[in-house]
Amino acid sequence: MKIVVCIKRTPDTETKIRLGEDGVSIDPNGVKFIVSPYDEFAIEAALQIKEEAGSGEVVLLSMGGDETQETLRQGLAMGAGQAVLLKGNPGVDALATAKALSAELRGMEASLILFGMKGADMDQQQVGPMAATLMGLPCATAVSEFDLAGETLSCRREVEGGAEMIEMDLPAVVTLTKGKYEPRYASLKGIMAAKRKPLEEKEAQGGESRLIVRDLAYPPERPAGRVVGEGAETAPELVRLLREEAKAL
């Protein structure tokens, strides 16, 4: 069985974000980039399925600049077999990204296509279900765990107030959230092996972006926090402030 995992290069979640001079992007200097955390869940899920089946292949797909090679190598080091880099500049228009990815995915003939639930940069939560819709494939989003029995996938999807169980037949698309698939660390051997694994490069065939970033700004400063006091005796004053000043009670 062929499993394709779409991964994105994003800043490390610990990174301090500095705005670039153009006013519409961040300054990449000094930023550490990683495989977006949800995409690591997706890689882990793919590797587990392959290991359980004892056969199959896991292919990584990413759209990005030359530096995305490094990101794909990190995924290969976890255990994926090969990677495809679509050279392009993914912007804020997730539909343009979904078009570029699905154009490639159509020719890959995967049984299962995995995405992260959201990228840790633009936090859009869009690309997976968009790509699936463009390809006419079923897609379960925000899945924490799934089972494959023959050609049927049973997915557990986390929603407000509970979980939905969804069934669909292969080929299918799943977007992963945190749950069963705690990503493994790449071993030294894995990192060495990754250097020799095939990584194919192509130009991305995407549409133009029709969502335009006009400006990027730091979050509005929260008014400076205030320590009301120390210890339990402060509780009445806190509750008074919540009621009278913040009008939150």
């Binding site: 006009r214 400006d215 730091y218």
Partner: peptide, 11 residues
């Protein structure tokens, strides 16, 4: 965006 470390205005 970036987990609330910045805000983007989009058109």
């Amino acid at each position: 965006v970036f987990a609330g470390k910045a805000f983007a205005s989009v058109t």
